[in-house]
Nucleic acid binder design. Sequence first.
DNA 1: TGAAATGTTGGGGCG
DNA 2: ACGCCCCAACATTTC
Length: 488
Amino acid sequence: MWSLKKLAVMSKDTCIVWFRRDLRLHDNPAWNAAVKSGCEIIPFYTHSPSEEGKWRHGAASNWWLHHALQDLSNQLASYGLTLTLRNSDTAIAALTALTKEVTVKAIYWNRCYEEQSVKRDTLIKETLSNDGISVRSFNGNLLFDPLEITNKSGSPYKVFTPFWKSCLTLVIPRPETITFQQTETSPHNCLESDGLDSFALLPKIPWDSEMNAFWQPTRSGGKKLLKQAIAKSSDYQDLRDIPSTDGTSRLSPYLHFGQISPAEFHHEVLTRCTAKDHAQTGILRQLFWREFSAHLLYHFPHTHDQPLRNEYQNFPWNFDTDLLEKWQRGQTGYPIVDAGMRQLWKTGWMHNRVRMVTSSFLVKHLLQPWQEGAHWFWDTLVDADLANNTQGWQWIGGCGADASPYFRVFNPILQSKKFDPTAAYIKKWIPELSEVPAKLIHAPWEMEPLELAAAGVKLGTDYPEPIIGHQEGRKQALDAYSKFKSSL
DNA sequence: TGAAATGTTGGGGCG
DNA sequence: ACGCCCCAACATTTC
């Protein structure tokens, strides 16, 4: 047997496909190029969390990553391939070790665009190239490379609409999927691989039961949601802001980990949506927001924790761990805010509309730095994505590109009445208010004692009093803003 | 991808 | 029939 394998090794070159955030075999440019090269393929993944610094994946993302890797490994197995997994302090250590074990002709990967990844990959490219290995990287994670989209003066767009229009003048890539079968004698079977469990991505205490019920973190789960999104696309504009419905696609984690590619998403929506109206541009608009965020972070890499608008460096936040913690735990006394924060905690996800309401509440009413909110979302979201997270929080903080001015303060009561009129969302996540009539639930502190009693709620015991009044919070935020503005 | 305050208008009730 | 007031509905501006 050994001689047979050796013969195979000798008769064919070997290449590595380094999987990172492109955990799919469909529309994967790096994978396609490797297949086309005719080499034997070593599918490879290295787990190097310490290299990710302060933006290493949180527990919820890790939970997703575990299942995505398991699923990718299963898909590869059906092609006769084994996903080689390695724990390593750094990716470069893992890759140089691997290329010492096996004679490798080439390595393929899809680019990540965060500053840290770019730096890491540049170094790896240099090192491996010097070892005589052909290094080829591809764009599989965005529709366009960030350098492709510039305004007339050659600089990056800072406003969404012109950015989007500019994208639409270009050819949007079509997905390409290549099926493949590797011979059983390929060398990858001999490689040492750490078990997926050794990555320790799953929670030690089993808090993930709701996650398991809510998500199918696999390629087929993503495909199912994509199909559903297309089927319900004509209702998208009506339902996308109603958090009690399944009006959004919920594809963000699949896009983050690359189980669904943006090109596939785009192509499927464009070719399969029967209604050729605003419904499809509505969904695709979100995909271009993702694109816009990634491009912004690429061009302004410091914005992951510093405001894009420099003058906001000195904004007078009122950092207070007690307030922050109450927000994190869903104990603010504002049902719509608390429902969102609890949904996030239980499912690793929050509806987009509620993300805006909760984050506005933290930044405006509570005057907490947006970076604190960004960190909490990062730690708890399964779709945590540095670019999207950064862009979202800077937008709400009024300090980012295309940002809502600081004085746009969401009214959590109005938002609640407008987007959760039946209170179905609130009641799902705040069971202690389940008997409260929908009309009253948006501001329980305004309820009469008799109404509270009838609903079996004792305010301050069963459900908290509001940690700040709306008018008070709004005024505080606007005062801070005007004071800050006059100090510039 | 606000909200609240302020301004304008027009229809209907009513003296 | 007329003018006056009220106020809802909408538009504009201000924060």
